[in-house]
């Protein structure tokens, strides 16, 4: 007998007392919990997102669509970034104001070691969650492979407000496709492993800048 059949057999014997239905019944779970905590309009939701992002040490900026290229160029210049990874589907317009910056295109052949020699990465996102201050990446064309937002030490992410912002975790999951590899980011890399004292910045990008852009 295979181990698989052995384990499944043990489970069935262990549950002999349970008088089970053939398949799980619908409605075994009472989902009476809230879909959203509190009542907010779109502007208040964006404010809450900004507040919670900042609470976990992300740096939050706001810009209009017209201001965005100048703002992104300014953030990279302030950081002293010379080499920036760019996902293939990032709107060309976003980086139109960049000067003296080498763009490193995200590609399958780009190794982790090469990424380690890059200063910054600029991406979009799939969705942002206000209640938790979370940005979700789904490796879409404006976000690129998972590694490009991991190895560089500086990540600038653009969130389109209000269309990419949801209130809550349940709303975010509804919008996301589990087949895609997802990365949920709530502030920069952190640890509480030394005396349960929170320190920002371990292995992931130690600086996370979020630009909330409105049209």
């Amino acid at each position: 007998m295979s181990t698989r059949d052995q384990v499944l057999g043990r489970i069935r014997r262990a549950l002999a007392d349970a008088q089970r239905e053939a398949a799980p019944a619908r409605g075994a779970v009472d989902r009476g919990y809230l879909r959203v905590h509190g009542h907010r309009d779109a502007a208040q939701t964006a404010d809450l997102l900004a507040e919670n992002l900042a609470d976990y040490r992300a740096i939050v900026h706001r810009a209009t669509g017209d201001e965005l290229p100048g703002r992104l160029a300014g953030l990279l210049a302030a950081r002293g970034a010379r080499r920036v990874v760019v996902p293939p589907g990032l709107p060309e317009r976003w980086l139109a104001a960049l000067q003296d910056v080498e763009r490193v295109p995200d590609s399958a052949g780009l190794t982790a070691r090469e990424l380690d020699a890059v200063d910054s990465v600029v991406t979009g996102c799939a969705v942002a969650i206000a209640e938790t201050g979370t940005i979700v990446l789904d490796a879409g064309p404006d976000q690129g492979r998972r590694r490009i937002t991991l190895v560089p030490d500086h990540h600038v992410v653009v969130v389109r407000v209000p269309e990419q912002v949801v209130d809550s975790v349940p709303q975010a999951l509804e919008r996301l496709d589990p087949v895609r590899p997802l990365t949920w980011i709530s502030g920069p890399s952190a640890t509480s492993d030394i005396e349960l004292d929170r320190v920002e910045g371990v292995h992931g990008p130690r600086t996370l800048e979020v630009v909330l852009v409105t049209d």
């Binding site: 919670n52 976990y56 399958a108 979370t134 490796a139 895609r180 590899p181 949920w184 709530s186 890399s189």
Partner: peptide, 16 residues
């Protein structure tokens, strides 16, 4: 409210 990173993956993804 949320931990800094949550990763989800489903099998393998081409070139990622």
């Amino acid at each position: 409210r949320m931990n800094p990173y949550t990763s989800t993956w489903t099998g393998t993804t081409d070139e990622d």
